[in-house]
Design a protein around this nucleic acid. Sequence first.
DNA 1: TATCTATGCGTTTACGTTAACGCACTCTTC
DNA 2: GAAGAGTGCGTTAACGTAAACGCATAGATA
Lengths: 344, 344
Amino acid sequence: MTISEIAKLAEVSIGTVDRVLHNRGRVAPETIKKVMAIVDDYGYQPNTYARNLKLSKQYTIGVLLPQLHSEFGYWNLIYEGILKAAKELYPLAVRIDLAQFDRSQQGSLLKEGEALLKRKVDALLLAPVVPDDARLLVGKKHCVDYVFIDSPLPQTNPVSTVVQNPFRGGYLAGRMMHLLNPKGGALLTIQTYRSAYNSKERARGFSQYFADKGQYRSYELEIQANADIGQSLDAFYRVHQDMSGIFVVNDAIHRIADRVLLLGRKSQTTMIGYDLVEPNRKAMLAGSVDCLISQRPEYQGYTAVYQLYRKGLLSQEAEPTICVPIDVILPENLVDEQDWCPKS
Amino acid sequence: MTISEIAKLAEVSIGTVDRVLHNRGRVAPETIKKVMAIVDDYGYQPNTYARNLKLSKQYTIGVLLPQLHSEFGYWNLIYEGILKAAKELYPLAVRIDLAQFDRSQQGSLLKEGEALLKRKVDALLLAPVVPDDARLLVGKKHCVDYVFIDSPLPQTNPVSTVVQNPFRGGYLAGRMMHLLNPKGGALLTIQTYRSAYNSKERARGFSQYFADKGQYRSYELEIQANADIGQSLDAFYRVHQDMSGIFVVNDAIHRIADRVLLLGRKSQTTMIGYDLVEPNRKAMLAGSVDCLISQRPEYQGYTAVYQLYRKGLLSQEAEPTICVPIDVILPENLVDEQDWCPKS
DNA sequence: TATCTATGCGTTTACGTTAACGCACTCTTC
DNA sequence: GAAGAGTGCGTTAACGTAAACGCATAGATA
């Protein structure tokens, strides 16, 4: 079913059909009815190729993330997924425009986001890790379609939100801690200074697991940006001689693991953390980290780009929420570069 | 860079450029050189939208899978992923043509595959679970582009192969068995009658894990199609009073789990199996299955379709092998329909 | 010499959609 | 009652690619 076929059936010109389809006015109500009846009956779907050929527009997605090389590369993994999608979608006229902000600095997200909008992006892909800033940004009148990644932002209206359930992630971490470390003893949950939504929920899920099991003593520690981790840890080990496990709610696990090694405490401590950034991969291969929970950052970035593309260029409905599965990574399913691949 | 721009630069007509680009002959060697120089210099990429509009072809992918409702729905999960991709790619003129074969019947794959080729498909997506048949099919002269899914097929030339490493999957299953069941005791690996590549490798990986650990006694059992599972199991339990775990190399785990329950042996037996088909999900929720390894069947199907689409319609290079990560599923990360989703 | 074939190249049409343009007509308004 | 604004609609020109068609010219065959 093409526009000209509709035109023939309705006994009008294709221009008229086009005006009806795009509500461009200047059509008699009678005619509108006649055309719409046919459109509904036969189920007209515009031809994507013809449409985009004619529009011949670049679809630019503004990407707004924290500094890619902050936090040991987590955001960079997300960006890798974004780039992969962008590469695939290059022939379909999708482009990426990246802006990075400093998440520790109030106002930075908003400033960079506004700059991005001024550069005429067609859509926005952002991590709303500074909620107030993000809310102001997407609340702006001239704001384009947007998707959230990494964390949700209530009371907004995104095309889609790509996240993982942090509570369940923490809960699963609890289960893995229990499995890897059945002897019991004191446990420590470490958060870094930022009081991020995901971090809090993960810590909550972890302690909920042990609350459900009625076992173990669980403690929490909040480490400041430039604190001496080794000293805090050492103090903790001295007070709690039966320390048996540490859960770090983010990708900083390898740093804690290094300290634990230096303190000679690895053998008594099960280490669980988040995300397969490069230093964590190395730490796991070296045996200083026992288990990682992954939120599939590459997948999140990749998927988010595709959601926008489908909405913007294919006019498809996006899924309002995409909940990323929670992956458990043990040394046994750690994929390394030289991983097995079947020869064909 | 468009064809007409090239034509202008080379001072020839667009027809000539077109003939050069498509090696359609009837162009002077001199002219070919001149045009190609410009093409290489400026890096011409055909406009996908214009190209596909002009060709206005439906790209039909023939899908050749075992009966979708055999094996408790594993193949149906794959097909769901395929359908999801097809739905997304509908506006890009991608279509699916499904054929099912009986994997227990030699020649069925080949017969259905040939029928599919006769129906003029542009590409083939198949599970080469009957290797001899599959080899004959893709070896045919008029065979189109194809991708393999679920298992590889050596000595063929697919566009892509989407698989998981079955040995590592089994190895990981071993690790999970060890974690979930630290007491030790006799272990049983169950394969069903078909001597499939994946099944064998998984069993091998599982026993390798325990060989590496130098612990446990591990047995293997092969269950015939219509054998009395209960009786075989009962016999086994009687002989091995310290039975502590069962690993089923495929999605039939829930059936074994049912028998174990009936025999009153669940409390002494850790159950690990494969794939999140519906009966397995229920069994896990009910507590009769402790751990599942997933090979992400939906993802496999979804990805395979996209590989063909990118090759066929976008002329992009496909990845020769896509190795699907090995997922561990415990009750704690089992996602159910009413799973948490952030409100936006 | 007339006819045929091969070669090199330009021209043209079509794919389906979008949107600018223009024509004919009907109301207003001074 | 003439100029201006508004309405309904058809026509047409792109967008970039693919491929059929046609037109010269040159050499080969009858």
